[in-house]
């Protein structure tokens, strides 16, 4: 239990960015400014996001938590450039998001739907490299590397559907890291795997984001998961979606499933966020 008290100096450039601080050095990887998203026409319109403003600094691990129906998936789709805000601005590295930029990777919740079942594991991972015109020899090397990073060095020739759920989600993570994005977006990625696998995958993602130096925005409804993973947790409330609070998580790194979660500070963050999400 002692381990988590020794605060390691953080290697990452972590910036407490305010809305006005957008100079070149401290430019956030992604920023949302007064983003509002309304679905449907004037008659039957539904407000998915009311007014969302936050930024994520380079190297940061940000979690977005909120109850179901709070527009988390809409938020992630907006961050990815898959959906356009009705009003407000979504910027990736200072440029408004009109489509998905090459520097963004996305891991969807449902690996069964996002992996392509007609391609082997290696070819799934290879696909974004192929699309980007990476030379063949380099591609093979990168696919092998990234599969090894997620602990799947030996399954390249298998098809995704031949693997367990946890392994399939590792393939999806490998595929989104293969082209070395600046920003990795994850939409409740571990919601469909069992608890044990979930812990393994949480530690995996903490390790690979160091290894690949990627900024992560991780959407989840699980507060324990958010606190365990994040540098900052953005709590959004249920309809209409607004940011209720942004909580800095200063728990020591590297984090540990047992030690970190036994830290009194962990319980404190957990309690505070639970209150926010449950609207008490």
């Amino acid at each position: 239990m002692k381990g988590n008290n020794e605060v390691r100096p953080d290697n990452e450039v972590r910036l407490e960015v305010t809305a006005t601080d957008t100079g070149p050095a401290g430019m956030p990887v992604v920023s949302l400014r007064n983003v509002r998203k309304v679905y449907g026409g004037a008659a039957g319109s539904k407000v998915a996001l009311q007014d969302i403003t936050f930024e994520v600094a380079r190297g940061e691990f940000a979690c977005v938590v909120g109850p179901s129906g709070a527009g988390k998936t809409t938020l992630l789709r907006t961050l990815a450039g898959l959906a356009q805000p009705t009003s407000g601005e979504a910027l990736f590295e200072g440029t408004p998001l009109r489509s998905v930029p090459p520097g963004i990777g996305v891991v969807f919740q449902d690996y069964g739907r996002s992996l392509y079942p007609w391609l082997t594991v290696a070819r799934n991972v290879d696909l974004p490299l192929r699309v980007r015109g990476v030379p063949r020899t380099e591609r093979a090397q990168r696919v092998a590397e990234v599969l090894a990073s997620v602990g799947l060095a030996d399954v390249g020739r298998s098809y995704p559907w031949q693997l367990s759920g946890g392994m399939q989600q590792r393939v999806a993570i490998a595929r989104s890291l293969a082209y070395r994005p600046d920003l990795l977006l994850m939409d409740e990625p571990f919601a469909s795997v069992d608890a044990q696998t979930r812990f393994e995958l949480e530690d995996l993602i903490l390790r690979v984001r160091q290894e690949f130096g990627v900024t992560v925005v991780f959407v989840t409804h699980d507060i324990d998961e958010a606190v365990y993973l994040a540098d900052r947790v953005v709590a959004i409330s249920k309809s209409p979606g607004v940011v209720t609070e942004i909580v800095d998580i200063t728990l020591a790194r590297p984090r540990d499933q047992i030690a970190t979660k036994a830290d009194p500070a962990f319980a404190h963050y957990r309690e505070h966020l639970l209150g926010l999400v449950m609207n008490r």
């Binding site: 789709r77 969807f108 739907r113 699309v131 989104s176 082209y179």
Partner: peptide, 19 residues
């Protein structure tokens, strides 16, 4: 989700039709 994924992976609309 498969179509969203094709955009995320960087495919053009025509590329995603074939791939």
């Amino acid at each position: 989700v498969k179509l969203d994924t094709s955009q995320v992976l960087g495919m053009s609309p025509l590329g995603s039709v074939f791939r």
